[in-house]
Amino acid sequence: MKQFIEAGEFVTTHGVMGELKLYPWCDGPEFVAALPRLFFTPEGGRETKVEAVRAHKGMCLVKLKGVDSIDAARPYIRKVAYFSRADVKLPEGRYFVQDIVGCTVKDADTGVEYGVITAVEHPAAIDVYTVENSGGETFLFPAVPEFLDTLSPEQGVVTVRPIPGMFTNDGGNDDAD
């Protein structure tokens, strides 16, 4: 598992005092506000302290230590900000999206492998996993308790209990030739 995780991307400055607008790729402003520091490479690199964060129209307004003017803020525009996994404590049973992407999806009852999770989307109140099989076909899997058995990113496996047709492209007819 990667040590540094994407928090979001700085998209523009805000005001003249060095604040930056961060488009969050994580849970949102509250999550970002709890981060003590940010990094600017996937390997960590230079650490920058976070002085303040506030929500603003679905974005985060971030004040970084030492960035006190619009001119000092401009070099951060279009930069991805990362946080350290060590700075965050997730509740039991919760995982970072990047830990789920790449997991093999298996049937909890039969052990049949359906494919690998290639993306996680959040179109509504539930997550939807994109699962790609070995033939390159993709399927959308709603990650709801009725279908999702266990998440085990540490082992690289997600077990599921799908309804018939969920992992076929034949209109739901599992007996199709």
Rank of each mutant, 00 (worst) to 15 (best):
V144R: 15
C60E: 08
F141E: 09
E92M: 00
V88L: 05
G156M: 08
V32A: 09
D174M: 04
G93E: 00
P142Y: 01
K2Q: 15
K89L: 00
P75V: 03
A176F: 10
E51L: 15
S69H: 08
K49I: 13
V53Q: 04
F83M: 00
A52Q: 10
N133W: 02
E113M: 09
A52H: 04
S84G: 11
D107S: 06
A176S: 11
V105D: 02
E9C: 12
P142T: 04
Y82R: 07
L61N: 05
L148F: 07
N173C: 14
C103I: 00
C103P: 00
G172Y: 04
D174C: 00
H122W: 12
V62R: 06
K79C: 04
H122Q: 13
S69K: 09
G136W: 02
S134W: 13
P123Q: 04
D170T: 15
V157C: 07
V158F: 08
F10E: 07
F147S: 13
R74K: 14
P75G: 01
E113G: 02
Y82W: 12
Q98I: 09
G15E: 10
I77Y: 03
K63L: 12
G135W: 05
L38S: 09
R74V: 12
E47P: 12
S134A: 15
V67L: 07
A73P: 05
L64R: 08
A119W: 00
T118H: 08
V116H: 10
K65R: 15
M1E: 12
E113K: 11
E6W: 08
V53M: 09
V116P: 09
P36V: 02
F40I: 07
T41S: 11
G58R: 04
F39C: 04
E113R: 14
E121R: 12
Q98C: 15
G58P: 05
L22Q: 04
A33Y: 06
F39K: 05
E30A: 15
T138F: 08
Y95E: 05
P42R: 01
M59A: 14
R85V: 01
P162W: 03
A72W: 01
E132K: 15
P42K: 06
R54Q: 13
Y129D: 11
S69V: 03
F167I: 08
V116C: 08
V144Y: 00
P145A: 12
G18Q: 08
G171F: 06
F139M: 02
G165K: 07
A176E: 11
T41Y: 04
K57Q: 15
G136A: 03
P145T: 14
C103D: 03
G44A: 04
F96G: 01
E132Q: 14
D107A: 05
Y95S: 12
R78N: 14
Y129T: 04
V11L: 12
D71P: 00
I5L: 10
I117E: 09
L22C: 03
D27H: 11
I100A: 03
P75H: 10
K21T: 13
A55E: 15
K49M: 13
P29R: 07
V105A: 13
V120A: 10
G15P: 07
V160D: 01
T138A: 11
V144F: 05
